[in-house]
Design a protein around this nucleic acid. Structure first.
Lengths: 190, 190
DNA sequence: AAACTATACGGAGGATGCCTCCACTTCACA
DNA sequence: TGTGAAGTGGAGGCATCCTCCGTATAGTTT
């Protein structure tokens, strides 16, 4: 399930090891200090030179993508599971809510993952694509069941949820966030 | 109408002049390069030392607030005008849409102005308060007319709109933005 | 197992931006 | 015109970014 890009030639063993160490360190750092952690700190925590970090992840976004890859995968499997639920309407809602919570934890991923889909061929791109497909099924079912308006675009809704995350990032307020989410849900209902 | 803090002692003439030059330069810079322009550039463009800039605006947010003060005032007067409209429901919608467009122009203001209300006594705070009051009237009327749900919180809605701006900031797409806005509007309707 | 080479490592260092501090300048008022 | 309060400006300390290239090593070949 973990996304691996089969087209790229495999990394040398030491490189692979370093890459993993960097992602692990980044995961910790991002959880602790948000998406604008100093990359030098990440490198140090990973026991790796800054040059190595940049070799593996030319941009900060690349690194963040790698960090969030598995969470994206988790959202995907959840979507796939929910696709079999009895009530398509609430299944979609539940999944969107999961999105919201994922976003709250990894606020930073924000624009990063959103722009991930742009560069084709990357693992992040593939993972994102799979998630979209699974989510599309969810939406289609909810629409077919009559619970959700037929003229709703998946990306619009996901971005709205994402917007809620962004707006609440600086001063988190769970209740407000929940109310805002409910507003969006109300907006997509028939 | 321009917000002036009466409690603060007036600036010396040269200081006043410099302040204005800085804000003007910042307005240009922000429009061109977004909210994370280098402050040194702004100072240079204003023909002023970086120290002077920091004296007037200790934080980046302070500067952004000043930049957007008059747009906030414009939104306020528009809200006041719309409070007399025939259809309170569409009046509210129109005002929210104005918010959206204002946000699209000055994407950056984002979190800045949102947090502005925190520090009492500042001109920005006062302007923001006036805007909120005018908007609250708009919302109350819309609710009284039955067009908008009674359990809607003004801040929630404004933040949602703001979220739309943020999410669309990196890759602007007017149509998508409009659709997302419509979703929110649908969510607050009765 | 030794030699070889593509691959990867690491960190010094130049560039940029942030923000503070304080010696100097200017305004405004008597 | 003299004086002090208010204001100015930019050097400099600090943090972070990112590149570049000499050095090290994994994996392959003989």
């Amino acid at each position: 399930m973990t996304a691996v890009d089969a087209t790229a030639k495999p990394l040398r063993s030491d490189a692979r090891r370093n890459r993993d160490k960097i992602v692990a360190a980044a995961r910790v750092a991002v959880a602790a200090a948000g998406g604008d952690t100093a990359l030098e700190d990440v490198a140090r925590a990973a026991g790796v030179g800054i040059g190595t970090l940049y070799r593996h992840f030319p941009t900060r976004t690349d690194l963040l993508e790698a960090v969030f890859l598995e969470e994206i995968d988790a959202l995907t499997t959840q979507a796939e599971r929910l696709a079999a639920a009895d009530e398509p309407g609430s299944a979609l809602e539940a999944w969107l809510r999961a999105n919201l919570e994922f976003g709250s934890r990894g606020q930073c991923l924000g624009s990063s993952v959103l722009t991930a889909k742009k560069t084709e061929g990357t693992p992040a791109n593939a993972a994102y694509g799979r998630m979209r497909e699974a989510a599309a099924v969810l939406l289609a079912r909810a629409q077919a069941s009559g619970a959700v308006r037929a003229d709703i675009d998946l990306t619009d809704v996901m971005r709205l949820v994402h917007g809620i995350v962004l707006v609440n990032a600086s001063a988190p307020d769970p209740e407000r966030q929940a109310r805002m989410f409910d507003l969006v849900v109300a907006g997509i209902r028939t």
